[in-house]
């Protein structure tokens, strides 16, 4: 079943009087259960595409269809709700909130969903235990290593049981050992049926993936297994 589909997707940024095109007509299809690697040189439009797919930004042309719903017609509030309920983000720089404990960080999406405190605490604990951080629940992410922080971030991304996980260079800031750990977790998630779209520079990472999309200069240039 098709989860995400883009049709002739365009995005341009206004710089002074000129509009600089970044995405120049992207047709893309991601099926349920896929693990897709999105590759390409810097400035090719990977991040812009991820932002639009993640409902953080709107396209200037074409359309994005998420599970049959056209995102271009939704209001800001409705987009926020889709981010809250359907999408899990994993960022390169983790983006955890240092003032909160790991448990709280993982609870945050569920707090936004207004889930009852007990239920969300139990789920956050389970998720952290699943990524091997059951002994670090009350720690602040500030006191963790990079690999551990990314594991907290993965737990957070899973908190709302998302339809798709968008990972923007999740191993970009990590050493080799942590990279392997994180990728193993991602692979396991995919084996459990999660759909993942991952931006990466590292060709090495593609061996975990089921499909690879190459972008260059705002266009998809190559798709392959």
């Amino acid at each position: 079943m098709t989860l995400v589909e883009t049709i002739d997707l365009e995005k341009g940024y206004r710089v002074g009087d000129m509009v600089v095109p970044v995405l120049k007509g992207i047709d893309l299809c991601i099926e349920e259960g896929e693990f897709v690697a999105l590759m390409g040189p810097s400035g090719c439009g990977k991040s812009s595409l991820m932002n639009i797919l993640g409902c953080l930004d709107r396209p200037t042309g074409g359309s994005v269809i998420l599970k049959g719903e056209n995102l271009c017609t939704l209001s800001d509030g409705e987009l926020a709700r889709i981010r809250r309920d359907q999408i899990g983000f994993i960022f390169q720089s983790f983006n955890l909130i240092g003032r909160m404990s790991n448990l709280r960080n993982v609870e945050l999406p569920m707090i936004l969903q207004e889930r009852p405190p007990n239920a969300r605490r139990i789920r956050a604990r389970e998720l952290l235990e699943a990524v091997g951080l059951g002994h670090r629940l009350e720690y602040s992410p500030v006191n963790l290593s990079g690999g551990e922080r990314q594991r907290v971030a993965i737990a957070r991304a899973l908190a709302n049981d998302p339809m798709i996980i968008l990972a923007d260079e999740p191993t970009g800031n990590l050493d080799e050992k942590s990279t392997c750990e994180i990728m193993d977790i991602m692979k396991k998630l995919n084996d459990d049926g999660r759909t993942i779209l991952m931006v990466t520079h590292d060709l090495e990472m593609t061996r975990y993936c089921s499909r690879m999309i190459q972008m260059r200069d705002g266009r998809v240039v190559q798709e392959g297994i």
Partner: peptide, 16 residues
């Protein structure tokens, strides 16, 4: 700013 951006990315609305 960064924290607010994170909260918004994981689904906080402007009202939140």
């Amino acid at each position: 700013t960064h924290e607010i951006g994170t909260m918004k990315a994981i689904g906080a609305t402007a009202w939140d």
